[in-house]
């Protein structure tokens, strides 16, 4: 017993180091799996407020550019609206809507790591919940991962763990959108079978299989494609429409039917 105590006293620094290192490794490795990074995220009160204060100052620098982006989008939406036939009545009954939209502002963006997260200034109090989709006027951005009362973190599509259903526009060939951590302007689409005709420049949009994003949200265009090592699926490089380095205003999409879809799917899983 005496020897054990002596050993602990003699090596107390090493043991402390080992303990803290193990602690941080445990946090890190545990959060490699989806939805585990609950404790370490920038959606908490202190970090959220500091980032918000900083954003309030720097927001003025590219205000005109941001205005132009929003005007462009308004123009596009007006064109759609005016050219739409039988658009005489628009239902305002929110119980019949399939998707609801909340706007938010990015207060912290990152794109240089291998697991990038974005922090936005809406949270639980604005009824933001994990697993809602986040898009910009140009294309998809990511999925809400953690929320606090006033802030939320978004798992960017520039994240190793990101896996989003996507398809080639105007077809029903779908695959998974992943990121190889190399270039922040390029993501990868995998699992498209080799018989699918592809062209460089084809548009990729979100697929209908996901209950997070609505169908046909733009993602990017095909830059390059190769067959994978097994020669049966394509490995496609996609150039994003979004400039991931310059994002300010975002929309959070909530699918009202998601809960129902998830319940149905989990029932299937339970029966198997």
């Amino acid at each position: 017993m005496q020897q054990i105590i002596n050993f602990v006293i003699r090596h107390k620094n090493f043991l402390l180091f080992l303990f803290l290192l193990m602690l941080s490794l445990a946090f890190t490795i545990q959060s490699h799996s989806y939805h585990q990074s609950r404790f370490f995220n920038s959606a908490n009160w202190i970090t959220g407020n500091i980032y918000e204060a900083k954003q309030n100052i720097t927001a003025y620098f590219d205000l005109s550019e941001e205005n132009e982006k929003l005007i462009d989008e308004n123009q596009r939406l007006r064109k759609l609206l005016f050219n739409k036939s039988n658009s005489d009545t628009i239902s305002l009954d929110s119980t019949q809507l399939l998707y609801t939209i909340t706007t938010a502002r990015v207060i912290k963006n990152s794109y240089s790591e291998s697991r990038n997260y974005i922090t936005i200034n809406r949270g639980r109090n604005d009824s933001i919940k994990p697993d809602m989709g986040v898009i910009t006027s140009k294309g998809i951005l990511g999925i809400v991962e953690n929320t606090s009362p006033h802030y939320a973190t978004v798992q960017s599509i520039l994240n190793e763990n990101s896996n989003i259903n996507a398809k080639i526009k105007n077809t029903d060939h779908f695959g998974s959108l992943v990121w190889d951590t190399k270039d922040y302007a390029v993501v990868q689409l995998v699992d498209i079978p080799r018989m699918v005709p592809l062209n460089i420049g084809d548009t990729i949009v979100t697929g209908a299989m996901s209950s997070i994003f609505p169908e046909n949200i733009p993602i990017g265009t095909i830059q390059k494609f190769d067959l994978d090592t097994a020669k049966s699926f394509y490995q496609i490089d996609i150039k994003l429409f979004n400039d991931m380095t310059n994002i300010r205003n975002v929309y959070i999409v909530n699918n009202m039917d998601r809960k129902e879809i998830r319940e149905l799917e989990s029932k299937n899983l339970n029966e198997q």
């Binding site: 402390l16 180091f17 290192l21 990074s37 370490f40 995220n41 920038s42 970090t47 997260y117």
Partner: peptide, 30 residues
């Protein structure tokens, strides 16, 4: 070692890197 761990953890909170900075500052402090 404790102070370094805290420093790393503070940076981690801000940059959403789980506990990567904490692990590296602790090793460095040791």
């Amino acid at each position: 070692i404790w102070v370094s761990f805290l420093l790393g953890l503070c940076i981690d909170f801000f940059s959403d890197t789980m506990a990567l900075h904490a692990a590296s500052t602790v090793s460095l402090a040791y």
